[in-house]
Simulated scan of single mutants.
Amino acid sequence: MSSIAVRRRSGRGKGAGLGLVAWLLGIVFFLPIAWMALTSFHSESDAATNPPSFGAALTLDGYREFFGTGGGASPWPALINSTVASGVSTLFVLLLALPAAYALSIRPVKKWTDVLFFFLSTKMLPVVAGLLPIYLFAKNAGMLDNIWLLVILYTSMNLPIAVWMMQSFLAEVPVAIIEAARVDGARLPTILARVVAPIALPGIAATALICFIFSWNELLFARVLTGVVAETAPVFLTGFITSQGLFLAKVCAASLVISLPVLAAGFAAQDKLVQGLSLGAVK
């Protein structure tokens, strides 16, 4: 009995140690966000001090300048453009990736592993390598500074990783349930919507959140292919960085506001996200 008690105590000690390490790592990763949030409430002169002044007076000047109350440009068109481009492209990705992943997992085609590798290999090309051809295409097609061009680009960019992720999720769906639905006369759209999707909902939520984050944070294509009409939030944020003057507090305020939609989406889907990632999407 004494040896069992010693083992239990050692196991509890290891668990407490791992918990402490996890908390320390969490705090380390959270410190830059906390620093950014604190700096956003400082004046520009206090934010520019080195070392930083933690006890400086708090102010909302950075947020006022970001929202254009001081006469600057309003961020709402850029935020709306980012929401449309990210949301619509994520919806298109899910609509296209679900049947593709179904064909590769539940009813696999020949050499389906080669198909998955082909999907993943499209992400190996540097994004900047395709910038000029896409720019010339958009220019000749009259789609420069068009939000729907970004929707098409973000859909094509996120579709490979979405198919790769959802294939592993759909592989966990019991084939017997699908066969039973097929025997009852259900067609493929009904099977996907009423049988496969509810079972794989955590994986679908994880895929949607990751695609939304990738689209929301994308800067290169949005910077080159948009101007005033289709300007997105990351492009709007870069406008605060100038070669003269102080802008640190304003940039921190803008960064915090632009990050809130992604943080809110992650918080709302955290349960489904954890369940989905635990199914083996990230390996």
Rank of each mutant, 00 (worst) to 15 (best):
M1F: 15
I4S: 13
I4P: 02
V6I: 10
R12V: 09
G13Y: 13
A22H: 04
A22I: 08
V28N: 02
F29A: 15
L31V: 15
P32V: 01
A34V: 04
W35C: 01
W35Q: 01
L38P: 00
L38E: 07
T39H: 04
S40Y: 00
S40R: 00
F41N: 02
F41T: 07
E44H: 00
S45Y: 09
A48M: 09
N50A: 10
P52G: 08
S53R: 11
F54W: 14
L58M: 05
D61S: 13
G62A: 05
G62V: 01
E65F: 07
A73F: 12
S74G: 07
I80Y: 13
S82I: 03
T83H: 07
V84E: 06
G87A: 14
V88I: 13
S89I: 10
L91V: 14
F92K: 02
V93E: 05
L94D: 02
L98D: 01
L98K: 00
L98G: 00
A100E: 04
A103Y: 02
A103E: 01
R107P: 00
T113N: 15
D114R: 14
V115W: 12
L116N: 08
F117W: 12
F119W: 10
F119S: 06
S121T: 14
T122F: 15
V127N: 10
L132T: 11
F137D: 10
K139C: 04
K139F: 10
N140C: 09
N140L: 15
A141Q: 10
G142V: 14
D145F: 15
I147D: 09
L150Y: 04
V151P: 07
V151R: 08
I152W: 05
L153T: 03
Y154N: 13
Y154S: 07
T155Y: 05
T155R: 02
P160M: 09
I161Y: 14
I161H: 08
A162C: 04
A162K: 01
W164H: 01
A171P: 03
V173R: 07
V173S: 08
A180Y: 05
R182T: 10
R182C: 08
V183A: 12
L188D: 06
I191L: 06
A193M: 14
V196L: 04
A197Q: 04
L201S: 08
P202F: 04
A206T: 06
T207C: 10
T207Q: 03
F212L: 05
F212P: 00
F214Q: 06
N217F: 03
L220M: 14
L220S: 09
F221S: 00
V229H: 10
A230V: 02
A230G: 00
E231I: 06
P234V: 03
V235E: 00
F236Q: 01
L237D: 05
T238G: 02
T242C: 15
T242W: 11
S243D: 12
G245D: 05
G245S: 07
L246Y: 08
F247A: 10
A254F: 12
L256G: 03
V257R: 06
S259A: 07
L260K: 03
L260G: 04
L263M: 14
A264T: 06
G266P: 00
A268W: 10
Q275E: 15
S278I: 06
K283N: 06
